[in-house]
Computed example of a mutant assay.
Amino acid sequence: MRLKDEVAVITGAGSGMGQAGAIRFAQEGAAVVVVDLNGEAAEKTAQDIRNNGGRAIAVAADISGLEGNEKAVNAALEEFGKLSIVWANAGLATKVQPLADADEAVFRRMQDVNVYGPWNMARAAMPHLAKEKGSMLITASLSGLTARPGNSAYSATKGAAVQLTRALAIEFAPDVRVNSICPVATQTPMQDVFTPGGLKDEIQPKIIAGIPMQRLAVPEDMANAALFLVSREAGMITGHNLPVDGGSLC
């Protein structure tokens, strides 16, 4: 198994990409700390893993601040004795809309989760990851690498996540590898935030038309990419922001 003897913390793992990643990592031998603001969702993911013979615990935490990230890290240390993988996956989005209609309070909350979240996770986890020569992964976005109208606030937070990945990779090499995945539009609850109501029928066909693979991604696409990047197989890869985009940037 590719993650045998590894201990992973995954944030935003109550649904979507984080949930798929928690299940996939456990299948590959990792013990998983399933972290989510929604404690019931986190426990459901953890229970699904345990029901299939894996090892997992759930932690309810707000990861926008240092305290919530420390809670998750400490749970891994207390339950499993170490920490070797972190996937800072939790994120927030807002609907595509003109700048004039944007809400500053929503932007600030996205900053808290999408930027301060992984930054604070690094603060909490790096000493323990360094001890294990481990790996940190951040969920950035294709929106952090390219731009589209009506998406300035979200793009700004994910652009910050892209650059945070590079900065942390340099600072913590050679002890900890740090990478990100940059998903294209993915069939998760967050995708419905981008295109609520009638916007979905209008916008999603245009998104799919711009993806050479001619489909939205699914959470398992991201889980599989994440699995490779956090595994020891990717031992010479750090500071990389991997587009998982069906060829959209070609």
Rank of each mutant, 00 (worst) to 15 (best):
A234Q: 05
L99Y: 12
L37H: 06
L164Q: 05
A26T: 02
G246P: 04
R109M: 02
L137W: 01
A22L: 08
M126I: 15
G65V: 10
G54Y: 02
P243V: 02
D221A: 06
A102G: 05
T188I: 11
A42E: 07
P212N: 08
A100T: 11
I211M: 13
N179L: 10
A26V: 04
F172N: 14
M213V: 12
G239V: 07
Q27D: 09
I10D: 01
E40L: 10
Q214V: 07
I181E: 01
R166K: 14
R55N: 14
Q97C: 04
I170R: 14
I138G: 01
S84P: 07
M236I: 11
G91V: 03
A8R: 01
L229P: 03
G134P: 08
E70F: 02
V218S: 06
A156I: 11
Q187H: 10
V244P: 03
S152L: 12
G68R: 03
L142P: 00
P212C: 10
E43A: 15
G239K: 02
A153M: 14
E70D: 08
L145G: 04
A88R: 01
A90P: 01
T45S: 08
A41T: 10
G14L: 03
A31H: 03
W87C: 13
M136S: 05
L129G: 05
V7Y: 00
M136L: 15
A122P: 02
V244T: 07
L145F: 06
Q191N: 14
G239P: 00
R55V: 13
N38T: 09
I207Y: 14
E79T: 14
Q163W: 10
T238G: 07
Q191K: 10
R148D: 01
M1I: 09
K206Q: 15
P205Y: 12
L142G: 03
G198H: 08
A30F: 03
V193H: 07
S141L: 06
P98F: 13
D112S: 09
R166W: 06
F107C: 01
W119S: 08
N224G: 06
T94W: 07
N51S: 14
A161W: 03
A223P: 00
L229H: 01
E43C: 09
A105S: 15
E79V: 11
V33D: 06
T94C: 13
Q204T: 15
I57Q: 07
L92K: 12
E28I: 04
A125K: 02
A173T: 15
R50E: 06
K131S: 12
A156L: 15
R123K: 14
K95Y: 04
T188E: 08
S155L: 10
A90K: 01
V73D: 05
K82V: 07
S155Y: 10
I208R: 11
G65Q: 12
K71E: 13
S152P: 00
L168I: 08
D36K: 05
T94P: 00
F194W: 11
S152F: 06
R177L: 09
L77H: 06
T238R: 04
D101M: 05
E6A: 15
Q27K: 12
K82A: 09
S15L: 11
V35D: 04
K4T: 13
A226C: 09
T11S: 12
Y116Q: 10
T188H: 04
G54R: 04
S135D: 03
K44F: 08
P205H: 12
